[in-house]
């Protein structure tokens, strides 16, 4: 996949599934009538029809079917909009995947404000929080195409129930072909000394741009990217917070329970530090553009810059 750089995230999702299926016939693509939105139809349907299962508009059954496939040694990637892949199937994920310890990979697509045109009914700000409190479930959120590909390769190679967020469009690049993924490790994207900025998934590219802008003003931002919020790399956060003394978190989620919640839990027990959480302040979504939602809820590029500046004391 040499042309990765210019592909949509969902196109990389489908291409990586095809790549994995070429290597291992046990990898399965399971959908619930949103395969075109996930990018797997026609890409995976055409290349690997035997490995493609469509459950129809029946997400609970999709998760159960995924669990049954996994019981028999298959490696199912079960995708739907994140609202349906998390809150709608919470008990199915709890019992048939996490508790039963079945090797199911659940993919929540179009998470957070990236559901724009579908509005508040579909806009999901709590899938990370919901899934993070589920024992025996890893929770990932890749920030770009390079990370997505190696993250999926890691998921296919490891027996571990997992939930992964996936935004669908093209996104800015944070990494390159040399990137490697370890769920136990956060990535220090940029070293700094004045303030720690913690991001995950869709927001990491925005955070990187904010850190670069702040550098030109003389504010030194240490940017930590958390591709996995569970497991959560405690050491990297604590080391950085001890150095900078202030932490800003930014996520495409409710500020309760997700990345910001995880950061506060870790710091309050290990290194009490002032934290400013940016994200959705416990509200529902609505039909709107990303810029509108960034401004309304206060977690866009300008808000990240302002929050970092404030906590850096500059």
């Amino acid at each position: 996949m040499s042309d990765l750089h210019d592909m949509e995230m969902r196109a990389v999702y489908a291409a990586t599934l095809n790549e994995l299926m070429d290597e291992n016939p046990n990898v399965m693509c399971v959908e619930a009538d949103l395969s075109k939105a996930s990018g797997t139809n026609p890409a995976v349907v055409d290349a690997h029809p035997e490995n493609f299962v469509n459950a129809g508009v029946a997400e609970a059954n999709m998760i159960g079917v995924g669990a049954g496939l996994a019981v028999e040694g298959k490696i199912p990637f079960c995708a739907s909009f994140s609202c349906f892949a998390s809150r709608r199937v919470y008990d199915q994920v709890y019992l048939s995947v996490a508790y039963a310890n079945t090797n199911v990979k659940i993919v929540g697509t179009g998470t957070g404000i990236t559901q724009g045109p579908n509005g508040g009914t579909h806009m999901d700000f709590q899938d990370m929080a919901l899934m993070r409190v589920m024992p025996n479930l890893h929770v990932y959120s890749p920030c770009d195409v390079y990370e997505l590909r190696v993250m999926m390769r890691h998921m296919a190679a490891n027996v571990q129930p997992t939930y992964m967020q996936l935004v669908r469009p093209k996104v800015a690049k944070v990494f390159d072909e040399t990137y490697s993924f370890d769920p136990e490790k956060a990535v220090v994207v940029r070293e700094g000394s004045d303030v720690t900025l913690v991001a995950t998934g869709y927001m990491t590219a925005f955070a990187k741009a904010a850190a670069e802008e702040l550098a030109t003003e003389g504010v030194s931002v240490e940017l930590l990217h958390y591709p996995s919020v569970k497991p959560f790399d405690i050491a990297t956060l604590v080391t950085s917070a001890e150095k900078t003394g202030g932490v800003v978190t930014v996520e495409n989620q409710n500020i309760i329970g997700g990345l910001g919640g995880a950061v506060c839990e870790v710091l309050s027990e290990n290194c009490p530090t002032q934290v400013k959480r940016l994200g959705i302040p416990d509200r529902f979504g609505e039909v709107a553009t990303e810029d509108y939602l960034f401004d309304k809820h206060g977690f866009g590029p300008a808000h990240i810059v302002a929050a970092c500046r404030e906590l850096a004391g500059k």
Binding site: G64, V65, A67, G68, L69, E72
Partner: peptide
């Protein structure tokens, strides 16, 4: 144990 899920799992096993 949580009712209603077993037949779905059986479907996945049968599909495999």
């Amino acid at each position: 144990g949580s009712l209603g899920q077993g037949l779905s799992v059986a479907c996945g096993m049968a599909r495999a």
